[in-house]
Each structure stands twice: as structure tokens, then as C-alpha cells.
């Protein structure tokens, strides 16, 4: 039973990180119908930014929790700037081009950012300081659910709640939903669609950066390639849940996290990806639009 619970919470943690990244994919897709393949790289850049900030602050002897918070804030801001700029450079000029063009541009952006970090940093794995503190009250259960996992799960939940409230109740959130549903009409009621798109990229990048910092300080090492793998997994999660749907992305991410965790635990870690993608194929056969996706029918 303990083993099961350990795998359960491990999967929940994994799923939370996937969810943070998957939201960026799904929100961007919902608004501009583009798979932003460079999104995983934004997550990776978030982790690297946090590493640099953490190294500097550690040098000055700042307390670990303060480092975690400051590094997260800097990573979020820096990654948002990247997300914003990537959209302006690689996607905006192609807004009215055939849909394949921005997709290729996204892949190009992804390769560019990976290699840019590879050259600017190194191809080796770099150790990342374990910034998440160990809580005393978690000690009795730490063999099945660690403090770091708790922090990741709780942070993700808070981020989701804030995002939901933002989208439901703020003016910008309403504008985002309107733009996702009908771009022409959004323009006609005076929504500055370019601004909404930028905001979407910024929010998605922030969440990804947060995921990057959390997972890096949990696992303890990063390299330039982590964004690619996590990006593919999060993208899978978004498709699994129904791309364009926010609750779908979270659900898909959790299912994927659990599938991988249980497959690793009960079968073999070699099979984690096999199970993850087999699940994707199965779900898409029976529900082509994803679990919570809306089939493409419209009342005219």
C-alpha cells in the first residue's frame, strides 16, 4: 500500500509539472491555433535563469527559501520576456500565413533556443541546488510523499486556482475567452487582439518557468535538453485532455503523470514512455478531440 501511495504521489507531482507546462500549449492553441513547439524551451530557460540567480544568491549567503522565491520570480519574468519576444519575432509576422508556416517557425525557434543555451552554457548536466526545504511535519510520511513533492503540488494548485479566477472574472480573462471563441467578433467589440495574444504567451511562459524552477530544485540537475522532453510530454498531456481546453490540460497532465509513475513502478522505467504514448493513442482513437475537447461542430 505504501508503495502504491508513493507512486500515486510521485505521479501527482509529475502530473502537476506537466500541467504547468501543458497550460501554455493549450492556451496558445486556444487563441491562435498554433502548437508552440518552443514552449518547452521557455520552461528550460526558466530553470537556467533560476540556476544563475540561485548561484549568485547562494554566494551571498541568502537563506534557501528566499532564494527559491526570488529565483522563481526572476525566472518567471525572464521567461515571460522570452515567450513575448518569441511570439513577436516568430509567429506574429506569420499570423495570416498558411497554418504550416508558423508551425515550422515554432520548431525552428525551439531548435534555436536549445542551441543558444547549449552554446551559452554547456551540454553537460548542471547540478541545481535543492531549494525546497524539508518540513518537519512531513517526516512521518516522507517516504511516500516528500516535502518537495508537497510544495510542487500545492504551488501548482494555487497557480491553477489563480489562473481560473483570472480567466473567469478579469476583463483581460474575458477578452481571452472571447478571442479564443471568435476572433473577428473580438476585434469588432474593440478587443486589442494582439495584446490578448501577447498576454497569453506571457501567462503560459510564466507557468512553464514556475514548473521549470520547481522540478529542477526537486530533481537537482538540468541541461539544455530538458525542455524538449518535458515539452513533448506536456504537449501530449494537452492533446490527451483536449487541446484548447484548460481543465482538459490539467486532467490530461495528471493522467499522464500517473500512467508514467505506475508504469515505472510496477513494470519498468524503460516502459514509462511506451505506456504514456500508448494511452495517448488509445484515447485519441476513442475520443479524437481529447478527453474534454470540443468536437469541431458549430451551430450556424
Amino acid at each position: 500500500m505504501d508503495y502504491f501511495l508513493e507512486l500515486f504521489f510521485g505521479g501527482l507531482t509529475r502530473g502537476s509539472i506537466y500541467a504547468l507546462i501543458a497550460l501554455g500549449y493549450t492556451m496558445v492553441y486556444g487563441i491562435v491555433q498554433l502548437i508552440n513547439f518552443a514552449h518547452g524551451e521557455i520552461y528550460m530557460i526558466g530553470a537556467f535563469t533560476a540556476l544563475i540567480v540561485a548561484s549568485v544568491l547562494t554566494f551571498y549567503g541568502v537563506n534557501t527559501v528566499a532564494i527559491l522565491i526570488l529565483a522563481s520570480i526572476v525566472a518567471v519574468i525572464y521567461s515571460s520576456a522570452y515567450g513575448f519576444t518569441v511570439e513577436k519575432i516568430a509567429y506574429k509576422p506569420l499570423r495570416n500565413a498558411p497554418r504550416l508556416s508558423p508551425l515550422i517557425s515554432a520548431i525552428g525557434m525551439s531548435i534555436f533556443l536549445q542551441n543558444y543555451v547549449l552554446l551559452a552554457q554547456t551540454s553537460d548536466f548542471l547540478p541545481f541546488p535543492r531549494l525546497i526545504p524539508q518540513f518537519h511535519f512531513m517526516e512521518p510520511v516522507s517516504h511516500i510523499f516528500s516535502s518537495a513533492e508537497l510544495v510542487i503540488v500545492v504551488t501548482t494548485m494555487v497557480a491553477m486556482v489563480l489562473l481560473t479566477l483570472f480567466i473567469k472574472f478579469t476583463n483581460l480573462g474575458k477578452a481571452m475567452r472571447a478571442t479564443a471563441q471568435d476572433k473577428t467578433m473580438a476585434l469588432l467589440i474593440g478587443i486589442d487582439v494582439d495584446r490578448v495574444i501577447s498576454a497569453t504567451f506571457i501567462i503560459g511562459s510564466s507557468l512553464a518557468a514556475l514548473g521549470g524552477v520547481l522540478i529542477a530544485s526537486h530533481i537537482g540537475q538540468i541541461n539544455f535538453y530538458i525542455g524538449f522532453i518535458a515539452g513533448i510530454k506536456a504537449f501530449t498531456a494537452a492533446v490527451l485532455g483536449g487541446i484548447g481546453s484548460i481543465p482538459g490540460a490539467v486532467l490530461g497532465a495528471l493522467i499522464l503523470g500517473w500512467t508514467e509513475s505506475f508504469a515505472t513502478g510496477y513494470v519498468s522505467s524503460d516502459y514509462e514512455d511506451v505506456f504514456a504514448f500508448a494511452l495517448l493513442v488509445l484515447i485519441l482513437i476513442f475520443r479524437p478531440a481529447g478527453l474534454l475537447g470540443k468536437a469541431e461542430t458549430k451551430k450556424v
Binding site: 477578452a175 471568435d182 450556424v300
Partner: peptide, 20 residues
Amino acid sequence: GRHIFPYLTVMENLDLGAYL
């Protein structure tokens, strides 16, 4: 073709009319 935001409520559609 009216272009109602299909998944927003009537109230939200009206609110958005006053967006600016």
C-alpha cells in the same frame, strides 16, 4: 451571422459589448 460567443453566457456577451 450574429457571431455570438457561444460558450459565454448571455450576460458575459453583453458585458463584453461594453469592453472599452
